[in-house]
């Protein structure tokens, strides 16, 4: 029996992560630490109830963006991607492999963060915890898909890190946490509605507020559409032939 290429790739990526214990510890523990910091700061009050769910959406998204950007960039610069291109490896095998590995990792990361937020920090969750987890994983996949695509435009790891303030921070500022989107200046409102992560935040916030149905499905489908879009764009950035 042969292992499908995407499964072999996912296993390989997870093995690489496993060999880097410090990174695993940071990825697993840091979301909870920062959620705890918010809870402490706002004394688990009303402000925390507003920010908490957003933080649960934020960490899978931005951490997977950074991890994916760096790992794919390393794959490009170390010559392993070039080597893969000379083998029977398919592009979908590479991309789905990364997506699978980071989705699995995001499940663990989000589960710990959600349990910590609800049981330790007293985050009130009106909606279902399972739905929140599924949405957090979708946000992680959004980060992975954006990282896969955008890392193609970075030549060095320093540049890849700079993509964080360039592409991620504006999405956080305009994501509806600091100000509801419909109260923003018109231009910023339009920008906010174009940003994928706006929908990532909206879905998680709606689930936490106990909303259901279309209020959750609509942002979920938008996030999924962005994931698919970025993965398709990402596969275009993996040419077999280069200069």
């Amino acid at each position: 029996m042969t292992t499908p290429q995407f499964a072999a790739t996912a296993a390989r990526v997870l093995k690489q992560l496993r060999n880097d214990r410090r990174t695993i510890a940071l990825l697993v523990v840091m979301p909870s630490v920062l959620i705890g910091l918010f809870a402490w700061l706002f004394n688990s009050g009303q402000m925390f109830q507003r920010v908490g769910p957003v933080v649960l959406a934020l960490f899978p998204f931005l951490m997977m963006f950074l991890v994916t950007s760096i790992t794919t960039l390393r794959e490009r610069t170390s010559g392993t991607l070039e080597r893969l291109m000379t083998t029977p490896m398919t592009k979908s095998g590479i991309i789905l492999g990364y997506a699978t590995a980071f989705a699995l990792f995001a499940v663990v990361q989000s589960l710990i963060a959600v349990l910590f937020a609800v049981y330790v920090c007293d985050l009130t969750l009106a909606g279902s915890m399972a739905a929140l987890l599924v949405f957090a994983v979708a946000d992680a996949l959004l980060g992975t898909a954006m990282g896969l695509f955008l890392s193609a435009f970075a030549r060095t790891e320093f540049q890849a890190i700079q993509f964080f303030p360039l592409f991620i921070v504006p999405q956080i500022i305009l994501g509806g946490v600091f100000m509801p989107i419909d109260q923003m200046p018109r231009v910023l409102e339009i920008l906010a509605r174009c940003f994928p992560f706006t929908y990532g935040i909206e879905g998680v916030a709606n689930i936490a507020a106990g909303l259901g149905g279309w209020d959750v499905w609509r942002p979920f489908l938008v996030v999924v559409a962005f994931v698919v879009g970025f993965i398709v764009l990402g596969s275009l950035t993996l040419p077999r032939r280069t200069r």
Binding site: R12, K15, Q16, N19, D20, G79, T80, R83
Partner: peptide, 11 residues
């Protein structure tokens, strides 16, 4: 096999 080897150093 390229000159830079193309290996995963952390595996």
């Amino acid at each position: 096999s390229a000159q830079n080897d193309g290996l995963y150093r952390d595996l």
